[in-house]
Every structure is written in structure tokens, then in C-alpha cells.
Design a protein around this nucleic acid. Structure first.
Lengths: 119, 119
DNA sequence: CTATTAAGTATACTTTAGTATAGCGCTATA
DNA sequence: TATAGCGCTATACTAAAGTATACTTAATAG
């Protein structure tokens, strides 16, 4: 099946539609996922570095969210055999392409703000 | 300032970027907002009708989420002076245009599923 | 007189998300 | 020997989100 057909078919099937959209929502869901992804969109980085980039995140949450993102194929974790060990996190291809729909959300958000302020 | 410039400027400003993206996230955030919006994308409808369309939602949650959506300018509520009163909910223009970024999320979700299954 | 419908509200509860704080194993540097 | 940095984990807690169940007001149908 062609790409365009897959999309068309999915839109006509509420269940598949919801599954795919929910995948996207889950990836940005919660207080910290977006800051983490934003941090990794710039550069592959290490644990402590991300912690420094995101004020107020606790190591517990950072660890939890990174695991979650890794499990969902958004983030890749690489351990280097240095002393002491260093660990690098980077976005997968899927992860990098999150920017695609974030841009659309941004545009919608700006439009919406305008229309709300107009009243 | 031109539309395109606003978007460009926003992308270069992390705070504004986050504000606008968060507006979009808030609108679809939680267990029930998306089903409610989906239900209203088809048709303007009444409270009980929405409740029937969304199995398992309680009136408490439906009421809460509709109020929230109304406050955020996504949904418009109209009370008709019939006996007994009937109340109709419909999407605002902003509400209708949510489809724009949902489509992008859908596309991303499908791509992502493919890439995860490929492994 | 009782039951039902519309559009919710009230109260109490459970579950999930997030916070606060401390500590581990390892090594390098002062 | 003490301190600091890295990449976390453990325990205990609070706060936010969601559920369950009952009830309200006003009218109408049986």
C-alpha cells in the first residue's frame, strides 16, 4: 500500500487514528518529556548535562523519562567504557522528526493566542 | 509583523516556543479531551449525546473537560430555552483547526510505528 | 404516583504523576 | 584522607487526575 493510502485509510478508521495519534501524544506527555527532547534536539548529551540544561528536574524524573523514551524508540542510550563510565543520549530518527508535528502545534498555538486575544 | 516572521521569531525564542506549543498540548491533554474534540469534529452535539458517543466517560469528567475547553476558547456552549433546557456544544474556529496538527501527529505516529515494528 | 430524561453537581475515594532527600559504586584530584 | 563528579537508585511523601455513586430540578409519559 502507498503511504498516502495508509494515511487516508487510518483517518477513516477511528481506532487506528486514535492509536497513531496517541503514540504521538505519549511521546510528549508529562511535565518533562518536551524539555528533554528539546535538549536532545540540539545535541547528543550526557545525563548530568541534560540535568544542568533543565533547571529543577530531579535525577529520578530524568532517569524515568529517559528510560521511557528509550523504550518507545525515541532516544538511544550509549554507554562508553571510559573511567568513570560516560553515557550519551541522542534522539532516534523518529525522535528527530518530532519537530515536524511540534512545528504544527506551534503554528496552531500562535494562531489560537491571536484569536483569544482578539476578544 | 508578517505571519512567517512571527513563526520564525518564535522558533528562535525558547520561551515563546514553549508557550505556544504548550497551548496546543494543554488542549489535547488528559484522557478525555481528544475523544470529546473528535466527537465535536463530526457534529455539534448535546451533553448526553457526547456521553453516549464516549463509552465510560462520567458526567463529572465530561462536564469538567467541556468547561475547560470552553474557557480555553476551543468549544462554544449554547443554551436553548426549550423545556427542558437543551445545551449544544460546538467547536470554535480554533477548535476546528486542531485537526491540522492532529493530522501531523497521525502521520508521525504511523511512521514511528513502522520504524518500531521494523526492528 | 412512579419512572424517565436532560444537564449537570456533590462527595468521597483510588490511581498516577511528580517532589524531596538521601545515598550508592567508582575514580580522580587536593 | 576528604571531597567532588558521574550516572544513577531507593524511600517516602504530596499533588493532580480520574472514578464511583448518588443526587438535583423541572417536565413529561405511563
Amino acid at each position: 500500500m502507498e503511504e498516502a493510502d495508509t494515511i487516508k485509510e487510518t483517518k477513516s478508521c477511528p481506532v487506528k487514528f486514535m492509536l497513531a495519534v496517541n503514540d504521538a501524544i505519549n511521546v510528549i506527555h508529562g511535565k518533562w518529556k518536551l524539555p528533554i527532547i528539546a535538549s536532545l534536539l540540539c545535541d547528543k548529551t550526557r545525563f548530568t548535562e541534560i540535568q544542568r540544561n533543565i533547571p529543577k528536574i530531579t535525577p529520578r524524573m530524568l532517569s524515568k523519562e529517559l528510560k521511557d523514551l528509550e523504550l518507545n524508540g525515541i532516544v538511544k542510550r550509549t554507554v562508553y567504557d571510559t573511567i568513570p563510565v560516560s553515557v550519551e543520549y541522542e534522539l532516534s530518527d523518529s525522535g528527530k522528526s518530532i519537530g515536524d508535528f511540534l512545528d504544527k502545534m506551534l503554528e496552531w498555538g500562535l494562531e489560537h493566542r491571536k484569536s483569544v486575544l482578539a476578544k
